[in-house]
């Protein structure tokens, strides 16, 4: 079996980096979505959800334009580093973060919203700042939603194709991910190689999801957590 371990390793690296970044920017964004009372909040929610419905090629196309040497962003990056963002690993990360954003932010925001507001009120009356309340109450009670968000973002990045094709191209070791490799092998009629990679991706994704769902078996118990006098 000819497995392209380089493409596989690159894909996992990309998915890990993207999940970590989404965890970092997704938490504050989801917190804002869950708790802000800004009247135009729905606009932001719609924008965050866009990648779910847009064809990846549309997102990829605009990213390519935005990251290219003709855009201010692209020029600024080029003056800083000497090369464009398009067709680099960093460009791939930026594209993947945007593409997988709703898959992380929506479960985060949903689990934040479901935390009983009375617990937040109780925390405040006990002298806790909003930040302390967030880390001591909101986050611990949202763990299932956070795990779901990170895993979805990871899995979604593992399997992405259109955005990578548009802004990453097909450079071995830099932007050639598993899905691109499979596509390439099929184009070249190397069905055995394509099959090897496809099976590997299938088994890996199934294994990751299995572990997550197995860990999730605890959630029904957590959902019945009691905060009050009901007996």
């Amino acid at each position: 079996m000819s497995i392209n371990w380089q493409a596989f390793g690159l894909t996992i690296e990309l998915a890990l980096v993207v999940s970590a970044i989404l965890l970092a920017i997704g938490l504050p964004l989801a917190y804002w979505i869950a708790f802000s009372r800004w009247r135009w909040k729905f606009l932001v929610e719609a924008a965050v959800a866009l990648p779910i419905v847009l064809p990846p090629t549309v997102l990829g196309f605009y990213l390519l334009v935005a990251l290219g040497s003709r855009s201010p962003l692209g020029r600024w990056w080029q003056s800083l580093t000497g090369h464009t963002l398009a067709f680099t690993f960093t460009g791939l990360v930026i594209g993947s973060v945007l593409y997988s954003l709703p898959f992380a932010v929506q479960p985060f925001a949903a689990s934040f919203s479901s935390v009983d507001r009375k617990l937040l009120a109780a925390s405040a009356t006990l002298g806790a700042s909003p930040l302390r309340t967030f880390f001591r109450v909101v986050i611990p009670l949202s763990v299932p939603g956070l795990v779901t968000g990170v895993v979805l973002a990871f899995a979604h990045t593992m399997g992405e194709f259109g955005v990578v094709l548009m802004i990453g191209g097909n450079i071995p070791g830099i932007t050639r991910t598993v899905s691109i490799d499979i596509y390439d092998q099929v184009q070249a009629s190397n069905y055995a190689a394509a099959n090897a990679m496809a099976v590997l991706l299938l088994i890996f994704c199934f294994a990751v999801l299995t572990v997550v769902y197995a860990l999730h078996r605890r959630t029904p118990k957590q959902e019945s957590w009691t905060i009050g006098p009901v007996n």
Partner: peptide, 11 residues
């Protein structure tokens, strides 16, 4: 403040 349904931290 002891709220009506207590709001103990369940975790």
């Amino acid at each position: 403040y002891v709220l009506q349904d207590l709001a103990l931290f369940p975790h």
